[in-house]
Design a binder for these strands. Structure first.
Length: 198
DNA sequence: ACATTAAGTGGTG
DNA sequence: CACCACTTAATGT
């Protein structure tokens, strides 16, 4: 957990459940709460001019959802949507900031978390901005696997659907499917029963 | 069993 | 590559 659950609760945090596809907050809303995922997966997305979904980030257990917006006076540039059943702790912005002031350790953790995710964002930006679709896909695979402790080949299972993978790499799902198949032939990736292992 | 979503294929521009 | 059409596989209710 980014911030200790009990600490969040002691400052007035409340637990909320979301079902798959429930929206936690919408683009353009004013950030008013700190959200920390107890369990489940959340995506940050928006729809571009052509009506295409772009996934900016995927979050999971223990992470907070776009906490950086609580430090600037801006509106959410994207939506936060549950992509599985989720339990989330929600804490009002003012209380969250007060908590950080009173608890340097928590403050430092949040600071590190923001730095880490920003760093990861840079890496992903480099992957996705490659003109080569194959590099975009391989870079994204590498990025995901980098969070796994097991570095051996075919030990990382891609938990995303082809469609979600496409939304992250800004490619069409057919393209993702074809390249994954190509990578399978080249033994860079292994596909079993639709599951992709890298 | 029926409806829906995901994966996979072929062809075109 | 994207886009379109369509088949098959996997899931959901």
């Amino acid at each position: 957990m980014l911030v200790d659950t009990d600490l969040l609760l002691s400052f007035g945090g409340t637990s909320h459940n979301f079902n798959t596809n429930d929206t936690i907050f919408f683009e353009n809303e004013t950030p008013k709460y700190y959200y920390q995922i107890i369990s489940g997966n959340v995506k940050l997305n928006y729809t571009d001019e052509d009506g295409r979904e772009l996934i900016q980030s995927l979050l999971t257990d223990g992470e907070s959802v776009c906490e950086l917006l609580l430090f600037v006076d801006e509106k959410y540039p994207m939506n936060a949507v549950a992509i599985s059943e989720c339990t989330v702790i929600r804490l009002a912005k003012e209380e969250f900031l007060k908590m950080l002031k009173d608890h340097p350790k928590a403050s430092s953790n949040v600071q590190k978390y923001i730095s880490k995710t920003l760093y990861q964002k840079f890496i992903m930006m480099q992957n996705i901005s490659s003109p080569s679709a194959e590099k975009r896909i391989r870079g994204t695979l590498q990025y995901f696997k980098s969070f796994s402790d097991n570095k051996a080949a075919y030990t990382y299972e891609v938990k995303l659907t082809r469609k979600q993978f496409a939304c992250i790499t800004s490619l069409r799902t057919e393209t993702v499917i074809r390249y994954l198949k190509k990578l399978e032939k080249e033994e860079i990736v292994k596909i079993e029963k639709g599951k992709v292992f890298y």
